[in-house]
């Protein structure tokens, strides 16, 4: 059986919010080291890879490997009922046909419970090569979100090019063109945390990516910073690392090209 308790239900809420426009249903594979989800969009353009480590849970126990087939529309309905500072306890027995959610307020004076029917999802897993990318950019997730939102109005393809000094996000539309150039820096955000832009380049890179997907994957609520890994003609990796060793949410996006 699986039993996992997250201190903040909002963690799962934000993850589901971030992926529900890309995938409609997916398997959560649970074992004693944590929970993994791998799923592509229906067009095979983007892939979501979620890894939640058992250590990041307040309590976690999974005696046997279990696959939970989840419909995201149903999951969204359940998670909408959680207040942001509620804790969340997930429970499933070995049959894997239902998933139980318990939300508890911080003071313990309100407990709500939901039971969700699971489905059998016939999903093929892909093997993702462990690529050593030519370019690694780490930046504020709010900045990445702003760039994608601003530039999305100008065209359907984002060109990202990076050299040792800067990274350029550019769009060529039918009637206008737009670009944003970022250089390495270090600033202090409103929570007095250091938010830096770092650019590591082994080889100058130039990639074209779908604006629609980038806009979906640019999400400032998941983590304070985002890492972009790029290489010519290789799927781009957009990675959010959760605090307290809870895990990562990765988006892989296939490039555009001739």
């Amino acid at each position: 059986m699986l039993e996992g308790r997250l201190t903040h239900a909002s963690t799962l809420k934000k993850i589901v919010e971030a992926v529900k426009d890309v995938i409609s249903e997916a398997n959560f594979d649970c074992n004693d080291s944590g929970i993994t989800l791998q799923c592509m969009d229906s067009g095979h353009v983007a892939l979501v890879l979620l890894q939640l480590n058992s250590d990041g849970f307040e309590d976690y126990r999974c005696d046997r490997n279990i696959t939970l087939g989840i419909n995201f529309a149903a999951l969204t309905k359940v998670l909408k009922c959680a207040a942001n500072d509620d804790s969340l306890t997930l429970k499933a027995d070995d049959s894997g046909d239902r998933l139980n959610f318990v939300f508890e307020s911080q003071k313990g004076d309100r407990v709500s419970e939901f039971d969700m029917k699971l489905m059998t999802i016939d999903a093929e897993l892909l093997s993702i090569p462990d690529n050593d990318y030519d370019v690694t950019i780490k930046m504020s997730s709010a900045e990445f979100s702003r760039i994608c939102k601003d530039l999305a109005n100008f065209g359907e393809t984002m060109n990202i090019s990076a050299d040792k000094e800067s990274v350029r996000f550019g769009v060529e539309g039918d009637v206008s063109a737009a670009s944003v150039v970022l250089r390495p820096n270090e600033t202090i955000d409103e929570d007095e945390k250091i938010v830096s832009t770092s650019i590591m380049v082994k080889k100058e890179t130039n990639v074209n990516l779908s604006m629609k997907f980038l806009k979906t994957f640019a999400n400032s609520s998941l983590a304070g910073s985002v890492t972009l890994e790029l290489q010519d003609d290789i799927p781009c990796l957009i990675k959010y690392v959760f605090p307290n060793d809870l895990g990562v949410l990765c988006f892989y996006l296939a490039p555009k090209g001739d």
Binding site: E124, L126, Y252, A254, D258
Partner: peptide, 13 residues
């Protein structure tokens, strides 16, 4: 510009 598929890059397990 043509959108490529992830299946061109990642093999099935």
């Amino acid at each position: 510009m043509k959108q490529k598929s992830l299946l061109n890059f990642f093999g099935k397990k």
